[in-house]
């Protein structure tokens, strides 16, 4: 069952192709010039971070519903990879904001929401590490992940009304033709890598849970005591 290694390799291939395409072959963005090339790294990260959080939400529901350790390990994998992508996303955004907006950070809804997401989902992992009883830990992880995800749209609404600067969500349909393909290819690259990483992390978590959870064989039944006659 090493399908995720193949997927990871495919991800590297796609991401490399997409990035090289975007860096060297795609035309410079017509307003921002070469800085616009950050698009091919930034936007796929953004899409996939959200997608991975969505997967985590599904896994959290599955965890609470079934109490199965396989759901739980996928949940841990997705949350962890989601947080990594999320942090990367904020860095990329800052690097793009500086040359285009003149500042690294702006109190824009998309940025603020994204930053809050790090806190929410990192909280899931931190909280998980504070519990040692397996059942308790599983429920805590599932519940906090569900709550964190449910909060995403609300945070988004709130921060949008609060202030607004970031552009609308990009999709392949909102970019000009020569930019389509590098963007698409990079996006699939990140997706494949993210799923492969989550799968590997989930595999490790499952191994850990099983090791913890290996039902030790019941102790051999001991002989009943004989008291003998008084």
């Amino acid at each position: 069952m090493k399908w995720h290694y193949a997927l990871g390799a495919l991800g590297v291939l796609f991401l490399g192709t997409g990035h090289a395409w975007g860096l060297f072959f795609a035309p410079p963005e017509f307003m921002m010039g070469d800085v616009g090339r950050i698009l091919y790294a930034h936007v796929p990260t953004a899409w996939n971070a959200m997608l991975v959080y969505l997967f985590a939400f599904v896994a959290a529901i599955g965890t609470l519903w079934t109490s199965k350790s396989s759901w739980e390990s996928w949940l841990v994998g997705f949350v962890e990879v989601g947080v990594v992508l999320n942090i990367l996303l904020c860095f990329q955004g800052a690097m793009w904001a500086k040359p285009t907006w003149g500042v690294y950070w702006d109190w824009d809804p998309r940025l603020t929401t994204t930053a809050i997401l790090i806190a929410l989902f990192a909280g899931v992992l931190i909280q998980r590490n504070l519990f040692h009883a397996p059942d308790k830990r599983r429920i805590i992880t599932g519940v906090t992940a569900v709550i964190a995800f449910v909060n995403v749209p609300i945070v988004y609404f709130a921060t949008t009304w609060w202030n607004s600067l970031h552009q609308g969500l990009s999709s392949p349909d909102t970019v000009s033709n020569p930019m389509h393909w590098p963007l698409r290819v990079s996006a699939f690259g990140v997706l494949f890598l993210a799923v492969a990483f989550s799968a590997e992390r989930a595999k490790q978590e499952r191994a850990r849970l099983e090791r913890e959870d290996t039902a030790p064989t019941l102790p051999l039944a001991q002989k009943q005591l004989e008291l003998g006659a008084e």
């Binding site: 017509f30 921002m32 040359p99 285009t100 003149g102 970019v175």
Partner: peptide, 18 residues
């Protein structure tokens, strides 16, 4: 052409650098 919808840079930098 050569751009994307929602491009919201407002020329903080000269084109071509960065």
């Amino acid at each position: 052409e050569g751009g994307f919808i929602g491009n919201d840079s407002y020329g903080a930098i000269p084109l071509g650098s960065g």
